[in-house]
């Protein structure tokens, strides 16, 4: 297991290096941040001075070399706009996004798995058809439209829930979070639902397919022949088998929830990293963009590692093969 983790960490270093090259070059190609940072009437001398202070007068390879040296000592550059280390700007915003993504993930699991089981066990019934139709809507209606409809219904017409911002936060176990106050939770509900709808649909479909593949297997029939209750067969025998693919997809999706919460954060003015990255791309704030992508890649790698470890807990066949 230790050798496995070390090997994965080495792979992670390579992935991070390659990503940094691609992103750095890509962002360099998008445009010149000086056009945006400087007022339109700036003189050539002012221009050259700003370019020199930001290191933008050097060739790409030198700029990248400097970035890499700094990165190895933990400094991912200073934001052109905020004049603060880009990593600390991201880390300031990250808890809000993590909170949102985590809430959406929990909703996807606690709603998606039971509905998927129900649907899979009652295949072809009215319940199954209703759930399946609902999940198609969850998948195919555009995320931003769903978000606007949620605001229309629950904020504008019914006036039940606030539509923008994060609300009041409190501190639980040293972490600043919306879960600490009722106001915070009220602000969290709509964006979390918006972000989770597509994931709920995905988990429903995965679970339903898993149930349908597992139910005809001999070990389920043998479990019935042993006189086990249907409840135990479904919650232990079926669920434990289908959890493996579900965990895989949920793991990958959790990464994408964080990375692509952009739309939801924009609609609900949620002060998370998604909104930060959109703003930073607009002003070509290169260090923030690069640092953000590296943070996201790191998160994906970490999540995948956790998923692999979860596999071996769930499936004894993998456990015995692990070095």
């Amino acid at each position: 297991m230790t050798a496995f983790v070390i090997r994965r960490l080495l792979q992670a270093m390579v992935v991070l290096f390659v990503t940094s090259v691609i992103v750095f070059t890509g962002v360099y190609a998008i445009g010149d941040p000086l056009e945006i940072l400087l007022p339109a009437d700036a003189t050539m001398a002012e221009r050259a001075q700003v370019a020199r202070s930001l290191g933008l007068d050097q060739p790409l390879i030198v700029q990248y070399g400097r970035f890499l040296m700094n990165a190895l000592s933990g400094n991912l550059g200073t934001s052109f706009v905020y004049n603060r280390p880009s990593i600390s700007i991201i880390l300031d915003r990250l808890p809000a996004t993590l909170e949102l993504a985590f809430s959406a993930l929990v909703l996807a699991i606690i709603i998606g798995i039971p509905l998927g089981l129900w649907s899979g066990l009652r295949r072809g019934s009215a319940v199954d058809e209703t759930i399946m139709t609902g999940s198609i809507l969850g998948f195919s209606l555009p995320n931003f439209w769903q978000g606007m409809m949620l605001i229309m219904i629950f904020s504008v017409y019914l006036g039940w829930l606030p539509s923008t911002g994060r609300g009041q936060t409190g501190t639980i176990l040293g972490i600043e979070t919306s879960f600490a106050t009722w106001d915070g939770i009220r602000h969290l509900i709509l964006p979390a639902i918006n972000l989770s709808l597509a994931k709920i649909s995905l988990v429903i479909r995965l679970t339903r397919t898993g149930v349908q593949e597992t139910m005809p297997l001999d070990f389920i029939k043998f479990a019935r022949a042993r006189g086990l209750s249907s409840r135990r067969i479904v919650t232990v025998h079926v669920l434990k088998n289908i959890l493996i693919p579900i965990i895989t997809v949920i793991g990958v999706e959790f990464g994408s929830l964080i990375a692509f919460a952009v739309v939801t954060e924009t609609i609900f003015s949620w002060p998370g990293v998604g909104k930060l990255i959109i703003d930073s791309i607009k002003v070509l704030d290169r260090p923030v963009v690069v640092a953000y992508i590296l943070v996201v890649v790191t998160m994906f790698i970490t999540i995948n590692l956790i998923v692999d470890i979860l596999y071996s807990i769930l499936d004894p066949r993998i456990r015995s093969k692990a070095p």
Partner: peptide, 14 residues
């Protein structure tokens, strides 16, 4: 009841 294929009658994850 005892089934035909012993490879399939026991749940692999239990």
């Amino acid at each position: 009841m005892i089934f035909q294929d012993p490879m399939m009658t026991l749940n692999p994850v239990l």
